[in-house]
Design a protein around this nucleic acid. Structure first.
Lengths: 170, 170
DNA sequence: GTATATTGCGCAATTC
DNA sequence: GGAATTGCGCAATATA
């Protein structure tokens, strides 16, 4: 697809300095250019350093004025590269984070399943345990032949909820 | 706010098309502009549509050439807004995702703690159970006389749902 | 077909 | 002075 393009200079709310410079040697600084009918316009007029080799303090090192210069171009290119790299990384990171979410979600499900299983196991075991406890109680009385305690057939209809919930809130 | 701007053209390795257009009516399409001494250069010369009122198909509706026109400016502004919005959203989303990761991590820890607890409980219960089983076995043999058969009339109709729910809300 | 949303890219300011 | 981030605008593209 290839894209090449332009840039723009945006004299934003140019209060202080104005970065604005045109690239070309051919003037056309095209500053204001707000044709009639525009609702919003400003008073550009700030074109700061016209590197025209005049008498001002124009101080450009190499070729043209600060822009388009060898060094400038080099710096830009480096920065562009850095930017690209940085963005790539950023994107990668976001992607990784998303994936992490998915992994964690899976893990969570696994853990919950496990909890469910353990809970069930525990429940069964507790029931068994209770049952045996009752058996024991019977046995204690039965063999003695002279039980000193009432409550025989302990039909403990434990049809209630023997819920031993162990919720650990936090 | 208010921003106005210009463009420049950066002629990188412009192989494909060059969209390039200058804003002002004052020509100066300034395409290449690679001064001498540069290490990277190319064959610019591609300026496609120089809307210079020549014989080409220059077709501008309103004021100046396609750029700087009222409509153009309006569209740009809208797009800029949309871009800003989109980026904000994107950023927000990334942030949310990151937060989700944190939440899930916490949840995971909680779940693991719970598993640990349940496991321990289970272990204890199992041990107890085994111990009692042994005791029972001993009892069965020791009294010698009667015991002999388990399962008396302890009809513990545990028909309830002994649900030990461990709700872990969040 | 236009209007909005996304995306890649370059610039410039800022941070480190 | 250099790389890395970040906000921003442009234009191409995708989506509605």
């Amino acid at each position: 697809m290839s894209k090449r393009s332009q840039q723009t200079i945006n004299t934003e709310q140019n209060r202080g300095t104005v970065s604005v410079i045109q690239g070309q040697a051919s003037g056309a600084t095209t500053t204001s250019s707000r044709p009639p009918g525009g609702s919003l316009q400003l008073v550009p007029q700030l074109v700061p350093a016209t590197p025209a080799g005049g008498g001002g303090k124009a101080k450009m090192k190499k070729t043209s004025g600060d822009k388009d210069s060898d060094e400038y171009r080099q710096r830009r290119e480096r920065n562009n590269l850095a930017v690209k790299k940085s963005r790539m990384r950023s994107k990668q990171k976001a992607q990784d984070t998303q994936q992490r979410v998915n992994e964690l979600k899976e893990e969570n499900e696994r853990l919950e399943a496990k909890i469910k299983l353990l809970s069930k196991e525990l429940s069964v075991l507790k029931d068994l345990f209770l049952e045996h406890a009752h058996n024991l109680a019977d046995n204690v009385q039965a063999p003695g032949a002279e039980g000193a305690s009432p409550a025989h057939n302990n039909n403990n209809n434990n049809n209630g909820a023997c819920n031993n919930n162990n919720n650990s809130s936090q």
